[in-house]
């Protein structure tokens, strides 16, 4: 049976290695996209809709960033548990952290709603920061795939 993997030392193997290295950095790039995209959108909203909406958006972006970070940690802990490696975290801790993300989002929304209901739209928009970052990453990967042929 013929193997799908390229033989080591061949140009195909080198190309595979470069592509693997490129795609393994996707999560870090998404994190950076979030860090760049968040402040940019907050400034744009500040000019377009005023301070209150921008403040709500900033809180939403912060919650979304923290949410994504905790999601990564929870999935990593889940991977540790599934593969049986580095099981320093308890199952309860993993589940609690997964649920704590929702509590944080609810608390943020409640806080904004009680302090300034006008900022709620901004908060809701800010929660979509990871989606924007993923779209940016998809566009970047498409560009690299077309430009470099990875």
């Amino acid at each position: 049976m013929e193997s799908d993997q390229a033989k080591p030392g061949t140009p195909d193997a080198a190309s595979d290695s470069v592509a693997q290295h490129f795609y393994s950095g996707a999560l870090e790039r998404i994190r950076r996209f979030m860090l760049v995209l968040g402040p940019l959108v907050v400034v744009a909203i500040w000019f377009a809709f005023g301070l209150r909406s921008a403040l709500g958006l900033a809180v939403g972006c912060a919650i979304a960033y923290l949410n994504f970070h905790w999601l990564k940690r929870v999935v990593s802990a889940l991977g540790d548990r599934a593969t049986g490696t580095n099981t320093t975290q308890s199952g309860k801790g993993v589940v609690l952290r997964f649920l704590l993300r929702y509590v944080l989002m609810a608390l943020g929304a409640y806080g904004i709603l009680t302090v300034s209901p006008a900022s709620l739209n901004g908060l809701l928009a800010g929660l979509f920061l990871p989606v924007g970052a993923i779209v940016c990453e998809a566009g970047y990967e498409l560009y690299v795939a077309l430009a470099r042929g990875l």
């Binding site: 795609y23 996707a26 999560l27 999935v75 993923i134």
Partner: peptide, 12 residues
């Protein structure tokens, strides 16, 4: 690879 796909999937 699975972990990356899972994170993206859960976020979406």
């Amino acid at each position: 690879g699975i972990q990356f796909a899972l994170i993206l999937g859960l976020a979406l």
